[in-house]
């Protein structure tokens, strides 16, 4: 048992179109796994399945932190922190109110929410902006707030769906580094992206293309001597 992400024989169709074809992978605790795939590869569908926004009845199994998402979704989802590609902050609420809303949805008490919010925001350099409305934050600060929020319930695993889209280079680097640190501290991380420069050689790499896993291994081993971007473009046959 990996106690991280486990997907086995996962398939999904939109009508007659296959979005995912018999996907299997495992991400252990303490591992940063980059899920690399061009647009339309099936990354968003996979994220929706891993977060139970979609289910594929009768097709494969997903286990999160050892809990079956199909049979005990509440335990599985309680172990998962998510940063969606689409911004999910309520712009009319302050940073602190956004975190409090999320914390309550995870059953945390007001006291725990206050203590954990302060700690999570402080770690991400957002504590002094806690009382600002989300609407007034720039893109990088909004993403940091979402990351702080995703960590509020102390999840054992973290799923980030293209979290750096629209951010400048400094903000991208800061968030990528922070999440790598979280993996070093024992968290199981799945980071979907189509940007090869966010992947380190030591990362676990999954390459998804046309609904299938093309490669599953250590990023440095997979790319061999080539630049990861060149390798990726060659294997997926187009622009990333």
């Amino acid at each position: 048992m990996t106690n991280g992400f486990e997907a086995r024989d996962l398939s999904f169709q939109y009508g007659a179109t296959d979005a995912l074809k018999n996907i299997s992978f495992e991400i252990a605790r303490g591992q940063f796994c980059a899920l690399l795939g061009p647009n339309g590869a099936g990354k968003s569908t996979l994220v929706s399945l891993l977060t139970r926004l979609l289910v594929a009845p009768g097709s494969g199994e997903i286990r999160l932190a050892g809990h079956s998402l199909g049979r005990s979704p509440r335990n599985a989802l309680a172990a998962l922190g998510v940063v969606f590609q689409q911004p999910t902050l309520d712009l009319d609420l302050t940073v602190r109110q956004n975190l409090a809303y999320f914390g309550a949805l995870h059953g945390l008490s007001r006291r725990d929410i206050r203590i954990r919010s302060d700690a999570a925001l402080d770690r991400l350099g957002m504590l002094e902006r806690a009382e600002e409305r989300a609407r007034n934050l720039n893109g990088g600060h909004r993403r940091r707030t979402e990351l702080a929020r995703a960590l509020l319930h102390h999840p054992r695993m973290l799923l980030l769906d293209e979290p750096t889209v629209g951010l400048d280079a400094a903000a991208r680097a800061a968030i990528t580094d922070h999440v790598h640190d979280l993996a070093d501290q024992g968290m199981s991380v799945l980071w979907t992206t189509h940007l090869t420069d966010e992947v380190r050689d030591s990362d676990h790499l999954l390459v998804l293309h046309q609904g299938q896993i093309l490669e599953d291994g250590k990023a440095g081993d997979i790319r061999g001597g080539a630049r990861l971007q060149d390798w990726f473009l060659e294997r997926t046959g187009g622009l990333s």
Partner: peptide, 18 residues
């Protein structure tokens, strides 16, 4: 449309209760 529904639906509580 703005995505906050995802946050609600991925909460570890029964969907009917949410």
């Amino acid at each position: 449309e703005i995505g906050t529904m995802r946050l609600l639906l991925t909460s570890p509580l029964p969907r009917w209760w949410l």
